[in-house]
Structures are given as structure tokens and as C-alpha cells.
Design a protein around this nucleic acid. Structure first.
Lengths: 218, 218, 218, 218
DNA sequence: GATGAATGAGGTTTCATTCAT
DNA sequence: TATGAATGAAACCTCATTCAT
């Protein structure tokens, strides 16, 4: 997962494939480029990064890049889609068989932060460049984002029902996303705790915040 | 506050000034431009916005803009510095005379969100373009940010001491900033609650989260 | 006529004009550029001419050109529209007060060839690049062309009626245009006759061809 | 005629050939490509058509095309040379045994228009892209064109001599070419007459024009 | 016989900025 | 105070073409 071969499968290359499951040379090369591009976008931002920057970073000629994707925008799209798809996939696998709402939410947070800290560049590009895509590209990523959001809303609504709590799910969920996604602005791997501990602390703050004394309120 | 005259004082214009405190025509004109520019940066991002966009939005010629500031980067700097300075100023005024840590934190959150929802464009530009400035500009804004951060850390440490709590102040503060600053990505004034209510709900989540069951832990 | 000032009036510059009849400095500069561009398009064709070629020919920087028109396509449009408009204008003036159909057709041909030989570059660009424009640009030029064509059809129908002739007006008119417009492929001012004589000979061929022995036919 | 085998003979392929008269697979494949390319050049113009367009149209890979001809320019050359050669060939065959100058000219016109309407794309590419070739390619096509032009001049001079007429042969011939070659700009097979009728009407206009009342003139 | 992969050069256009007025 | 005119640099992208396979 997160391996080049997966990235490749996500990338919808322009050629038909007799054996879609196999990672072709094209796929592997594309995945390499995506990795370099992600790092450049992280450092300079999508608008601030030039195709020349990407060319330099990936060691491929400017024109060569266009053999692998038809526009800078599609490149960002591929990165965002792959990142988001992977997170959602992993989440679903981890939630399978778990039924306690609180545990589920802790898994949600852990899954998010683990991926975040393991792929900080991808996650910054996903979080920070959310508005950079347009039209078809934008809507396709937005669809995944909505699914992810919906899952979280579902878990929180389960929790509310199970514990008889009352609070605004929308605000709670969006606050949680804020806590988690803001990490890209401050996390320093040499100073800050690892994903598990961070997830624990954020889960504590969030879950206690949401579960305490909210029974009769509102 | 937030008036043209304040903006002007922040802006360090190039002309000599007999009476620096008075809002000159220069100051007022600059403030207008800043307002338009903020809106353009919000919509298109700093890198994505061109000087031509700013010219169009402010109804002034491209060359005319340069009479008021010497570069696009300095323009962003003026916006960020003014915004941040104003928030900190207001916060200090509001905290004056308050001594209960919980109340102080609630004031901190309310102050932040009130300004946020009253000046959503400024706040998005402050949050989202935090890395766009370089060198001298960057460090001057970073200094204010650090002061603001320090204030929040102080309040939280007071709370911990007062209530005998134990948690990572750093993570708590940064989580709180995440909750608050992420708002620019989702707040919809036609759907979402006003600043006071929002501040209440976020304060509840955060404070309960931080104050509950954290006594003996860690 | 055909002077820079006329060209300017045709060019629909981007600014409002208090006194539309006056040729501003902008207009004059634009007209100069159009003249150079026409020559480059004649030599290399519209597709074959690069903006760099135009920059070189007009002695202005690449970026400077874009101050005067927003795209290469619009530049071609301005040339074609001005050329065609001028021809039609002159034709109308010359036809005024003339009522004999044969004389009118001779005037039509003379007008066309005089302009052609006086402005060979413009006319080649008009004739040869008829399909290069797209959408709005194309349709605006097509409208003038249709008017010009309609005038010629009208003259020929008058002739037919007056002399009791019978032939296909469409084919006659389009043959005439072919004779005249093909000139850009072969006319050599050092070898070939001047406009008046050329017009005389073409008029003879065409009119005799169309007026001879066609009474009872078809 | 006009068959792949002819195209092949015209094309001077790079391979050795045991039996040059036979249409090899190479020749047939090349002829197919030429057909597709002609259509693309007609639609987009020589400069406006990219090798990628040709690749798409012919269903062959970009690199594959280069097995059949070494450059885009040579491709245009092959098209033009084949087209022109074929026209001249056919003309010569048709003129054989005919001695009346008027009949000969009518045959010339019919031959031209028949080929024109049967191969509109080739003829547009021949007429419209006359200046696109350079150096050796250009001169080789120019040679055929000159021969074709000379034939027409010969026929007209015969007519003049036979009927004691006086007019400029050069202008007459070039007017005739104009009438005929301009067709590509307007002919619509759903509206306009077929080649025979069109040739008849153009021949009438031209021959009457040239043969009427020109005896004592000039 | 044909192609996937790659490239240097160059395409059109936009950028932030300047300067004489 | 403000702008029209202009520019060098650089943006994204496409071009015809090549070469190992």
C-alpha cells in the first residue's frame, strides 16, 4: 500500500492494459515522478512550483514529464486522489469488525495521523491545496472527501446515540479535522511524539470534550 | 480598530509624515487597496493572484499600486501584519482584569473566532499563506505569531497549575489552533452558527477535553 | 484611407475614448504593429509566423506586443477586418451614382484589384488565411465577406436582368473572385501590368464570357 | 492511376526493391498514410497539423510514421508531387489525338476540375500549401507546376494563332487557374454542380471571354 | 515493421515590475 | 498622485524528431 504499484493503478494511464493488475514500467516511472512532485508541491505550493522545478526534482526533461501526464493540474489530481483513496481504503479495512463507537473513532484518528506522519508531504498537498483543482478534477476529489467526511459523521452519530449525547455533529467533526489536518503546519518529527501517542492525545481531548457533560445540554 | 488609520500606521508608507498619528489620504487609500487585495488573495491564493487581478479589483492602474507598496510580497506582509497585530491587541484588551484561567481561555477562543468570522478573508490569508513570505517579512510576522502562541501557552499552563492537570501543552495549544484556523475551509455564514455560539461549542469541546480525567495521567 | 488612423479606428482598442475620431498614440502604434505583422503573415503564413517573428519585425519586445492586442488570433482578426472593411467602404463610395450594370461590375473589379495591388500583403493575408480564425473572430469577418459577396451577386443579377442573360450567378461570381484573388500567387510588380490594365483585361474576359451567347442557353 | 502502386512509385521509399514495378506492402502502407495525411493537412493546414494529428488519423504510432518518410516536409512533398504528376499524366493522355485548340482547352479544364472534385483534399493541399515546401522539395514540385503551366500556355497560344486573337496569354492562363483553383474555397458537393457541368460553365465563361471581340484589340 | 520513451527547441502568453510623464 | 507604455524573465505546454528495442 502506498507503494509505487498502487500509485500506478490509481493513475489511470493513457494506454489499454491486457493485465490491469500488473505494474508496468510506465506505472513505476509515473509513481516515481509523483513522489518527487509531491515533495516539490509541499515545499513550494502548487501554484508556486513550476514544471521546471518538477523536471529538476525528478531528473527528467520538461517535455518528458508530459509523456506521463497531460498537465500540471492532472499531476496534482493524481497525487490527491491516490492519497485520499489510500486513506479511506485503510480506514475501511481497520474499521471492519469493530463495533464500539468510541473505539471506532479512535481508529479513525489513529488511521488519519499514522498516514499523515508517514506521508507528510502527500498530506500537506492534500490539505493545503484543496482548492487548487478545478471542474472535473475538483469534483472527483471532492467526492472522496465527502465519503470520508460522511464516515466520520456516521461514527459520531453512533456515539451520540449510544451514549445519549447531544452536540452538533457538524462542528465536532470539522473541529476534529481541523485538529488533525493542522498538523502539517507544526509537526516536527525530531521534537513531536509519534503517530500513536499523538493520536492518543488528540483522541483524549476530542472524545472527552465531546462526551463530557453534554447529556442534557442544548 | 481595523480602521484605515490603523492599517495605515501598520503600513510604514514611504513618505515623511508631519503628524504620524493622523490618517492621511495616503493611509486611507492604502487601506482600501489592502481590503481589495485581501479579497483577491482569499479567492486565488497569493501565488495565484496576479498584480493585474489586484489592479482590477481595486480599480487602480497597475503602476498606481506601486505608489502604495513596493512589491506584491510587501502587500501580503502588510495584510498579515495588520491582521495579526489587531487580533493580539484586542485579545490583550479583553484579557485585562480577568484572572480565572478557564474564563481567559474562553475569551481567547471567542476573540479569535469573532475576528475570524468578521474578517474571513483576512484570516484565510493569514492562515493559508503562512509560508508565502520570505526572510525579513516572514520573520516579522513569525514574531507576532510566536507572541500570540506564547499567550495561549501561558493561559493553558495557568489552567494546568490551577486545576492540577497533566497534558502536553504544546499539543493542546496546537490542536486548539487547528480547530479554530481550519474554519476557513468550511464555515458557511448561511448555515453555520455565529461566532459566539461557535466559540462556545469549541470551548466546550476543548476545555472539557483538556480538563477531564487528566489528573493522574502521564 | 488605409492610413494608420483608419486602421486604428477599426482596431477596437481596449480603452474608452472621449473623442473617438482622433487617432491616439495608442492607435498609431497599433497600426504600425499591424503593418509589420501583415508583412510577416504574408511571408510565413499565420500558423508559420511566431510571436517572436512579429516581435522582431516590429522592433518591440514580445511582452510589449501583448499590450496592444490580447492574442495572435486577434491580431490576424484586426488585419482582416480592417482590410475587408476598407475595400467594402471604397466600393460603396465608387458605386454611388453609377447605374449601368456593366460599368458597376467593371468598378467592382477595378476597386478590388487596385486595393489588391496597393496592399498585396493585406490581401494575401485576407485571401490565404481565410480559415485561420475561429468562432467569434471568424464569424465577424465572415459577415463582411458575405456582404461583399452579396453586392457582387446583386450587380450580376442586375446585368442578367438588363441584358436578358442566363447563367449561374453563383458560379460566375465565384469564378470572378477566383480570378481576382488568385493574383497573390503570381503577381509580380516588376513584370505585370498595373491595376487599371489588369482590371481591364480581367473585366473583358469575365464580362464577355458572361454576356456572350448566353441568351437562350440553359 | 491514383492507386497505391502509383503513389508508391512516386514516393521513392528508402528500401531496395527487387521488382520496382510491383506494389509492395511498404508501398500500400505508405499510400494509406498519405491519404490520411492529406485529409489532415486539408483540415488544419500544413503548419497547423502536428505529427501527432497524423499519427492519430492514420492509426499508427508517432515513431512508426517515420519508418515511411523521414520528415513532415517530405510527406507534404510526396502528396503534392503525386497529385500534380497524376493530373499532368491524365491530361497528356486525354489530349492525345485532339487537335482543335478550343476542344483542347475544354479538355484541360475538364481534366483539372474532374480531378479536383474527385480529390478535393489533395487539390486543396496542392493549391493552398504551395509555399510550404523549401529548397529541393519546392523546386521539384515547381518543375511539374511549370510544365503544367507551359502546357496551358501552349494551348492558349495555339488558340490565339488559330483564331487570330490578341490578348495577354499570361493573364488569361493565370485567370483561368484562379477560377479553377479557387474552387476549394467554396465548392459544396451537396449544392454545386458536378465536374462536367462546372467545367462546361467555366469553359464557356473563359473561352467566350477570351475569344470575343479581341481581334483588333491591343 | 513498429513502438514506447524521451528530448531540445521553441510555441503563446503572463508575470512582477519600472519609468517617463 | 497616478498612469500608459514597455520589458526581461519565466510560466505551461507542444513541436518534430530520435533511438533502443
Amino acid at each position: 500500500m502506498g507503494s509505487p504499484s498502487t500509485a500506478a493503478r490509481v493513475s489511470a494511464p493513457r494506454r489499454h492494459r491486457a493485465v490491469p493488475a500488473a505494474a508496468t514500467r510506465f506505472d513505476r516511472r509515473l509513481a516515481e515522478i509523483l513522489t518527487h512532485a509531491t515533495e516539490v508541491f509541499r515545499k513550494k505550493g502548487y501554484e508556486g512550483a513550476s514544471m521546471r522545478d518538477l523536471s529538476r526534482a525528478s531528473g527528467m526533461s520538461l517535455a518528458g514529464l508530459y509523456y506521463y501526464f497531460e498537465s500540471k493540474e492532472r499531476l496534482l489530481f493524481l497525487i490527491q486522489k491516490h492519497t485520499f483513496t489510500t486513506i479511506v481504503q485503510r480506514l475501511k479495512a481497520r474499521l471492519e469488525g469493530v463495533s464500539d463507537p468510541e473505539t471506532q473513532i479512535r481508529i479513525f484518528i489513529l488511521n488519519h495521523l499514522e498516514y499523515f506522519l508517514a506521508n507528510p508531504a502527500s498530506m500537506k498537498v492534500l490539505s493545503h491545496e484543496a482548492e487548487a483543482l478545478k471542474n472535473g478534477f475538483a469534483s472527483e476529489v471532492a467526492a472522496i472527501k465527502r465519503e470520508y467526511y460522511r464516515i466520520c459523521v456516521g461514527l459520531l452519530d453512533d456515539l451520540k446515540r449510544a451514549r445519549g449525547l447531544q452536540f452538533s455533529t457538524r462542528i465536532a467533526v470539522l473541529s476534529l479535522f481541523g485538529m488533525m489536518n493542522w498538523i502539517y503546519t507544526w509537526h516536527n518529527s525530531r521534537v513531536d511524539a509519534d503517530a500513536e501517542q499523538l493520536a492518543g492525545e488528540m483522541s483524549d481531548i476530542f472524545l472527552r470534550g465531546v462526551m463530557t457533560g453534554a447529556k442534557g445540554r442544548r
